[in-house]
Design a protein around this nucleic acid. Structure first.
Lengths: 201, 201
DNA sequence: AATAAAACATGACAATTGTCATATTTTGAG
DNA sequence: CTCAAAATATGACAATTGTCATGTTTTATT
C-alpha cells in the first residue's frame, strides 16, 4: 500500500488506460469523469477521503479503465497492485464483505443518479446535486451549509448533464430565490428544505 | 436456496419494502424499476437468468429496497435469506469474489448508463438501448437479430428516460431507415452497424 | 499589483422533447 | 371468435434546454 500525491493538471489514470492498481482516496477529492467521442464530458462522482476506486470489474479481467480519475486540487491516494488487492480480499473475509457493501452502496447511488437524469428537469437535477453536496461535504455555518468541495458552474453542469450556460442560469435563479449563495470558492446552501421540495416537484 | 415463481401482475418486491432475501434470476426476465413521487417510472435494468439482485447495500444495514422488482411474464427466481447469504459469502471466498466482480460490472454498467442519459440525445439513447438488447438477448435470424425480451415502446421509453410518444416517433424513424422492424412481440435489429454509428454521432 | 486566463453572466434564437388530443391497430382474455 | 384493453401512431403546440455570441467579473500567476 503506497501513498501517491497528485496535483493540478495531472491525472491519476485516464479512460482507456490499463488497470494496474486498486485505489483509496486519502486526502482531497477526486473527480470520476467519462467523455463521449465528441468531447462532451460527464462527471460521474466526486470521491472523498475513504472512497475506494478502481475496485471494480475493470480490475478483474484485464479490461481498461472505464473512466478518468482526476485530482481536484492536491490529493493523496493510497494504492495497491491489483493482484495483491485480490489476494488480500481472498484472505480477509471482513475486507471482502466491506468491499461488497461499498460496491452495493455505489451501485445504488449510480442507479439513483440514473433515475434523476432520466426523469427530472435540469433545475431538479441541480437541486438534487446541491442537496447531496450539502449532505456529503457540507460544513455548517451561521447562515447555511458551506460546500467544502470547490465546484465551478461548469463542474456542476457536468455532474447533472446540462450545459454550463443552463447551470449558470439555474444557479442564478436559485441565488435570487435565496436558496444558495456564492460560487465555486465559497458555495453556501441557504435553504435546504426548499431545495428538497424543488427536487421532488 | 428456495425457488419461487412469479407471474403477470405480481411483484417480487416493491420499492420501500424491507429487504429480507437475496435473489438470483433462474428463468425469465425481471424489470428493476424506480418511480418518482409524481408517478413517472424509470426502468433501471432488465435482469436475465443468472443475474443477482438485491445483493447490494440495502441488504446490509436493514435499509429498504431502493427499487421495485417486477416479473416480465412468468419468471422463476432463487432466493436465500440475507443472513444465510452473508454467512455463505464469509465462508466462501470464491463466492465473495464472484459477487465483487458482479457488482463491479453492474456499477460500470450503471455509470455508463448515467453517461448516456447525461450526454446523449433521445435517438442516441434509444440506439444504445437497441445495441445492448441485441448484445444481451439477441437471437440471430436470417434478416437481423431478434430481441428475445418482449419490450413495448413504453418499456423502451422508461429505459432511456423519454416519453412514450418520443420513443414511438423515434422507433418509427428507425423503422423507416430499416434499422429495426417489428414491435414488442417481435422486435428485430436489422442494421446494428448503423445503430452503433448513430449512438456515437 | 498587473495581467492573462478562467469563470460567470445574459440575450437572441434554434433544436429537442414533452404535452395533450385523438385515431388506429394489435394483443390477450373469456 | 369477440371484444375490451393495451399498444402504436400522428398532429399541433408548448416548454425546456442547447447554441452561439458577447461582455463582465473573479481568480491565479508572474
Amino acid at each position: 500500500m503506497t501513498e501517491t500525491r497528485y496535483g493540478k493538471g495531472q491525472y491519476i489514470f485516464r479512460e482507456g488506460d490499463p488497470t494496474e492498481y486498486f485505489h483509496i482516496v486519502k486526502e482531497g477529492s477526486v473527480k470520476c469523469v467519462k467523455s463521449s467521442l465528441d468531447g462532451k464530458e460527464c462527471t460521474l462522482k466526486v470521491l472523498m477521503p475513504g472512497d475506494l476506486f478502481c475496485c471494480d470489474a475493470s480490475a478483474f479481467d484485464g479490461a481498461s479503465h472505464p473512466g478518468t480519475a482526476q485530482p481536484m486540487g492536491d490529493v493523496s491516494v493510497l494504492r495497491m497492485k491489483k493482484d495483491a488487492y485480490f489476494k488480500m480480499l481472498r484472505a480477509n473475509p471482513d475486507a471482502a464483505m466491506e468491499v461488497i457493501r461499498y460496491l452495493g452502496t455505489r451501485l445504488n447511488e449510480a442507479q439513483e443518479k440514473a433515475k434523476v437524469l432520466a426523469l427530472d428537469r435540469a433545475d431538479q437535477r441541480l437541486a438534487s446535486l446541491l442537496i447531496s453536496l450539502a449532505e456529503r461535504s457540507g460544513v455548517p455555518e451561521p447562515n447555511g451549509i458551506r460546500v467544502s468541495v470547490r465546484l465551478t458552474r461548469q463542474d456542476m453542469a457536468n455532474m447533472v448533464g446540462v450545459t454550463t450556460e443552463t447551470a449558470i442560469r439555474i444557479m442564478a435563479r436559485f441565488k435570487k430565490a435565496r436558496l444558495v449563495s456564492g460560487t465555486a470558492a465559497r458555495l453556501v446552501i441557504r435553504d435546504l428544505p426548499k431545495l428538497r421540495l424543488l427536487a421532488s416537484t
